[in-house]
Each structure stands twice: as C-alpha cells, then as structure tokens.
Design a protein around this nucleic acid. Structure first.
Lengths: 207, 207
DNA sequence: CAAAGTTAAACAAACATTTAATTTAATCAA
DNA sequence: TTGATTAAATTAAATGTTTGTTTAACTTTG
C-alpha cells in the first residue's frame, strides 16, 4: 500500500479524531476538515468510512508482530534481556502511538465495528510467539511456569489503562506541572521499570 | 433517586446499548425500542441523551467506594485477608457488571463525553483508600513498599482487559465449548487467583 | 485528449429533540 | 360512590440538523 500525501493526511486525521471522539462520534466532514481536503475525497480514495478505519488497522497492525518476533528470537541475548526488551518496546510502542491504541481498545470493546477478525488474528499470533518464548525459557530452567495468557493480559491491560487515563494519572500523582512531553517520558520509564520488576517477581523468584 | 419501572427500563436499555455500540453509536430510538417505551419518554424523564448517561454513572458509581472502605477498614481481618478480599470483590464487581464497566472504560478514553469529573473524583477517592491501606500494612511490617498507583493500574487494567476481550480470550484459550455462564465463572476464579498471587509476589516476598 | 483528481452541491436517511393532542391517574367536594 | 378538576404520563407527528454518500461539472496532469 503506497499512499499519496492526501491519503496520508486523511488517514492521520481520521486516526486522531477516531481516537478522541470514537468512530461514530466522528463525521466524515470532521475528518475532511481536519485533513484539509474535500469531503468527497474520502469516498473517492477509501470507498467509505468503514473501509477507512479498516485501512488504518491494516496500515498499523502488521509491523508489531515482526518486531516482536525479532526481539524474542534473538538468541544472542539472554532470556531475561529479551523479556526486558519486550516490555520496554511494547511500552514505548503504545505510549508513542496512543491514538491508534485507543482506537484498538475501543474496537475490541465495541461489537459493531468490523475489524474484529483482524484484531483476533493479530492477538493470536502475538500470544503464540510470547507463549513459545516463555515455555522455551522454562525448559531452559530460567523462568518459572506461569500463566502466560494472564501475564500478557496484565502487560497489555496495565499499559493500555495508564495510557488511556494518563491525565487522570497526572492529577492523581501530583504531576500537573509537567509538560505533556515530560509526563510522557516519566510514564514510559515508570511503567517499564514497574512491569519488569513485577513480572520478574513471578517469573524468577521462588513461589 | 427513586426511579419508576419505566425509568428503570430506560436506564437498563441504555446501559446495555451504550456498552455494545457506544454512546454515539446508540440512538435514542434504539434505546426507546429496547426499553419498549415511546421516544419522547426519554426526553421527558431525563432531559437529553447526555443527561441519561450521567444518570447511569450517578446510579452506579457511589456504591463501590462504600464497599471498598468496608473491606479495607475491617480490622478484624489480617492485612493479607483484606487484600485478598479486595481483589476478589473487584473482580466479581467488574465481571458481573460488564456493561457499566465497558461504558466507564470508553468514557475515560473518549474526551467528548461529559462525565470525566465524576470519574476523576471517584478514582481519587478509591486510590486514596487503597494507598492508605497499603501504607498501613507497610508500617505494620506486613507489606513491602510498593508503587501503589501502578499496582492499582495493574488491578484495574488487567481485569478490564480480560472482561472487555473475553471472547477473544475464550477462543485463544480453547474454551469455546464453555457456555457464557461457565466462561464467566472460569474467568472470575482464574483472574482472582492469578492477581492475588501476582500482587503477593511483590507485596510479600523479598526483593 | 483521456484519465485522474477535485469540487460544490444535492441526496435521502437518520438523528435528537419538541410539539400539541390525548389518555391515565389522583384528588376531593358533594 | 359519584362526577369534576388537575397534574402526570403517553403518544404520533413534526421539527430542523446532521449524517454518509453520490453526482455532475470542472481542473489538472501525463
């Protein structure tokens, strides 16, 4: 998929608006205005509003599992180093693409947006790779036996929750004098450190 | 707030539809049809669609912090028992009221639904009570010093994530032959057990 | 000169809310 | 118990917007 500049503007505008107002809360007029294009260009290039959100998913969803496999199959690194890198990378990925991950969260919640098969397929592949990695580490005597599916739920759930409620978080933690950029960096480091420590407590320490 | 039967029908129908289709994805006609009342009754009783969702929040939000304080301030139980009961109760609460918690998740994500102050106030009170409890347990020498805010994020984030993606979860875990009720019971026990073990690993065991 | 890009305008359908008319229920003097 | 009075509840219809999409005319590009 090669998109021209106008198509990219539309995709970016739609991603931003779908994230903050939801799919149904965003009109194609809103998108056209944000992207600074004529309304008809959206139908012209993408066919419909539905197909536009599909295009956003297809554009975003594939690179993650490539990166994931790259990290976990890097046998030059120890199991623990690879696991740390998994957490770091995923935290950065979600925190640096909040719009898309908000849309993804909402699409999972909502039953009437037609990208569920796309999401499920991706979930399955990601989960299989992580489970394989943890099992390998277990057989190598490095990791304890753990409930991988629940651990992945904690990883995704915690990061999504902090990302999606970061301004509540900011006020609750008394970080209101931080700029958006400072808050962002603070949260990335904070979540990564905490999650790595948390998971090591069940992966490495004795029961 | 005492509601008559017709108002309760409207609130229940709205909660169900807002949960599955979102606020903007649900029309007042949908709600009226689901509740089997005339469209005009919604404006008549609640004023507008906005005030209807506010009424849902106000109806639901208050009982939780009462129950929470009740659990954590029960000094007849040990710190560990109280913590276990906190996790059990919250898991049950979310899993048994999925519609409301889906609406809450989406409202936190969305910036254009006007219940954010309501949610923030509730978040703050809940967080303060839990932090107070953990600090008390730390001073008593039972708990390690932990990042309470992150721990609460993991609690809420993990449960919300499993609840909101439970049908993905069902397929990924190969539990497709379970009925909805069986899946529900399986998940409640599964999440509770896992989360209690996870948190104890950082609250109790040595670093 | 033909294909692709771009536009303002038009389209019907769906939207939230209001209206004005009608029915139901409650109150109370006779 | 009646019949009158009044407020609350209920309704179908109408209101004026906004919705996603299409059209037909026009411009640019190769």
């Amino acid at each position: 998929m090669e998109y021209n500049q106008k198509q990219i503007s539309i995709l970016d505008a739609a991603e931003k608006l779908f994230a903050s107002q939801g799919f149904h809360g965003t009109s194609v007029r809103d998108i056209a205005h944000e992207a600074d294009v004529n309304i008809a260009m959206i139908s012209y290039y993408f066919g419909s509003k539905e197909k536009l959100i599909e295009a956003i998913f297809i554009k975003r969803i594939y690179s993650w599992k490539l990166q994931l496999a790259d990290i976990l199959h890097d046998s030059s690194k120890s199991f623990i180093d690879r696991f740390d890198r998994l957490v770091d990378t995923y935290v950065n990925r979600v925190m640096n693409n909040p719009c898309f991950h908000l849309i993804m969260m909402r699409a999972q919640i909502q039953t009437d947006i037609n990208v569920n098969d796309l999401i499920h397929q991706n979930k399955k592949e990601v989960y299989d790779v992580i489970r394989g990695f943890i099992n390998e580490g277990h057989k190598a005597g490095v990791f304890n036996e753990v409930d991988t599916m629940m651990m992945v739920s904690t990883l995704i759930g915690t990061i999504n929750h902090v990302m999606s409620t970061k301004h509540h978080f900011q006020r609750l933690a008394g970080l209101e004098d931080l700029s958006d950029e400072q808050l962002q960096q603070h949260l990335i480091i904070h979540i990564s450190t905490y999650l790595k420590k948390l998971f090591k407590a069940i992966l490495l320490h004795e029961a």
